[in-house]
Design a protein around this nucleic acid. Structure first.
Length: 460
RNA sequence: GGCGGCGUGGCCGAGUGGUUUAGGCAAGGGCCUGCAAAGCCCUGUACAGCGGUUCGAUUCCGCUCGCCGCCUCCA
């Protein structure tokens, strides 16, 4: 059975679905005020892999991930660009999904938008006021964190400890530095919704409570996101849910950061690379491979070198599949290797140990080549189909077997080169090889003559 | 200041109380080759430092040093 590290427990726990055969997960999505960077890509890939794995294990997964389209940053950007917040949100939501598609991230089954839930949020805040855990401050309605006995659970700190650690200049009206805003008064901004407390907009921490409960119920299996969401965002969600007596999420899972020279990649540090910048020159699968080659909770170093290493490793996986394809083996009739499947599942069950799982797949790749060297084609075909099958569980689709189709121009060059080689005119042969390479193909000389390969092209 | 995490071979990055290697990339040697490429084989005496527990620790405990994260918006 799957074990995952639960932030609320601080240890590995067995994940037993609430309803047998099903799995409900809520993953905090992006605030759409700018394009996504590598860090966003990592969380999206991590939870995409989790979902794919659970589905592969036969669970019916319900995956919900929101779009935060109400936020001060959206408002700031709209003002700066002289357009409406809705336009900003729409623009970056569209860009978000285009990028996620490139990464091969499966669309969540439900994609709730905060703006669609204003009424429910107001209703929740009313309930919190009625329960005497919210109070009116100068600029909004605040949640009184002292009313939740175990506040600080996800930070693994007590309320007192968190208070002591507060280092931001506090608004005087707040009862505790940890209290957070549920509803912000408009204060002159035109952006807002009517509420019992006047025009305004909801605070960030309320939307996910309302949307997750609406779509998944008052109790669901897993709530996830980047490690920086564990506190205060997720803790604040949990606090509201606790007051409402929701059982809420059974498990909390957080992924580690993308690092740049041992610093967290973030907007504020201006050390980020956008996903589109990366994917412009890199196979999206290479980033996915890089992500799964490290453990989801570990910091992950991403730089041009680590990316190109992953690209190279990926190319070798593609090449091995191609090599099997060229034997003419019938891959449709090949059988999955049950031992490999079980070993893969074992690794994944161990807190989603994708590094171990991929290491095994690379070993399998090596074995396939050995089998081919030995002429054991049928066994190689079985292993190859197994490898491709398991890579798919990680969301990595191999390039597919190329049928060897080439243009007349390339064929002409190949013929010319064969002739040159017969005449041992290697200078000409090498020159033609370069020409062919410029056309997007690689020529290799083997014992049975020239072999042509297609060089992978960047997706547009 | 409070809390938490990390320090593994050239780089990235897993893992474990003990005969045998994570894996990837790079490097060196070999097979093959006109060269190259691909593939295969071989090689590198890794676990921050200092103590402790233990028959035995990189792997558990303590301390020291270094790095990082959260405590503010953040994936």
């Amino acid at each position: 059975m799957l074990r995952l590290f639960d932030t609320a427990i601080g240890d590995l726990v067995e994940i037993t679905p609430m309803t047998s055969g099903q799995f409900s997960m809520y993953v905090c999505g992006p605030t759409v005020y700018d394009v996504a960077h590598l860090g966003h890509g990592r969380y999206a890939l991590v939870f995409d892999v989790l979902r794919r794995y659970l589905e592969w294990r036969g669970l019916k997964v319900r995956h919900v991930s929101n779009i935060t389209d109400v936020d001060d940053k959206i408002l700031e950007r709209a003002e700066a660009e002289n357009c409406s917040p809705a336009e900003v949100a729409l623009e970056f939501e569209e860009k978000w999904f285009l990028t996620m598609d490139k990464l091969g991230v499966l669309r969540p089954h439900h994609i709730p938008h905060a703006t669609e839930y204003i009424r429910q949020m107001i209703s929740l805040i009313e309930s919190l006021i009625k329960a005497d855990v919210a109070y009116v401050g100068e600029d909004g309605i605040y949640f009184d964190t002292s009313k939740v006995s175990d506040y600080g659970l996800l930070a693994r700190q007590s309320l007192d400890s968190l208070k002591a650690g507060a280092r931001i200049a506090e608004k005087e009206f707040k009862r505790s530095p940890t209290d957070f805003v549920l509803w912000k008064f408009s204060e002159g901004s035109s952006w807002g919704w009517e509420s019992p407390w006047g025009d305004g907009r909801p605070g960030w921490h309320t939307e996910c409570v309302v949307m997750s409960v609406d779509l998944l119920g008052e109790e669901f299996d897993l709530h996830g996101g980047g490690l920086d969401l564990s506190f205060p965002h997720h803790e604040n969600e949990r606090a509201q849910a606790a007051v409402m007596h929701y059982k809420f999420s059974r498990h909390w899972v957080h992924n580690g950061f993308v690092m740049v020279g041992s610093e967290k990649m973030s907007k504020s540090l201006s050390n980020f690379t956008t996903l589109d910048e990366l994917l412009h020159s890199t196979d999206p699968r290479a980033y996915r491979l890089l992500v799964v080659q490290s453990h989801y909770r570990s910091p992950l170093e991403v730089n041009p070198q680590t990316v190109s290493e992953a690209s190279r490793a990926l190319a070798r996986l593609d090449a091995t599949q191609q090599r099997v394809g060229e034997t003419g083996a019938n891959l449709d009739e090949a059988e999955l290797d049950q031992t490999e499947l079980a070993a893969f599942a074992d690794a994944m069950d161990n807190d989603l140990d994708t590094p171990a799982a991929t290491a095994r797949l690379f070993e399998l790749r090596s074995r396939i080549n050995q089998l081919l060297d030995d002429g054991r084609v049928a066994e190689a075909a079985n292993s190859c189909v197994t490898m491709a099958h398991l890579l798919e569980v990680l969301g990595l689709d191999l390039k597919g077997i190329w049928n060897g189709e080439i243009t007349a121009e390339v064929q002409g060059l190949l013929d010319e080169r064969a002739e040159a080689r017969r005449e041992k005119n290697y200078a000409l042969s090498d020159r033609i090889r370069q020409e062919i390479s410029a056309l997007g193909y690689a020529v290799e000389d083997t014992s049975i003559g020239q072999k042509i390969k297609k060089i992978f092209e960047m997706p547009e």
